[in-house]
């Protein structure tokens, strides 16, 4: 799980062009939206594409997004639950 979390951090930084952020700055349990990284709705779309592109995962039910993208850890857990890590 830890390896996947570190990999995800790098991918998020690259996808969202978070030039000022380093992987170690991201707490895997901090919220991605609002506080924490302070992402917004456009970033949510970018994260959906990230899952599709790197892990071949399509989110079937948009309502699940809120839980999946709560933090880096919840994203990693979701990827693992889909057997794609």
């Amino acid at each position: 799980m830890d390896v996947l979390i570190e990999k995800l951090k790098v991918q998020i930084i690259e996808q969202l062009n978070l030039a000022e952020v380093k992987p170690e700055d991201i707490n895997p349990d901090s919220p991605l939206f609002g506080d924490g990284l302070g992402l917004d709705s456009i970033d949510a779309l970018e994260l959906i594409v990230l899952l599709e592109k790197h892990y071949a995962i399509k989110i079937q039910n948009p309502a699940d997004g809120k839980k999946i993208f709560e933090s880096v850890r919840t994203m990693a857990e979701f990827i693992k639950s889909q057997g794609k890590s």
């Binding site: 996808q15 062009n17 456009i42 779309l45 970018e46 594409v49 599709e52």
Partner: peptide
């Protein structure tokens, strides 16, 4: 490059 897949919104917007 991605064969019309995985298009991210930022550069389009």
């Amino acid at each position: 490059n991605n064969d019309e897949q995985f298009l991210t919104p930022t550069s389009f917007i």
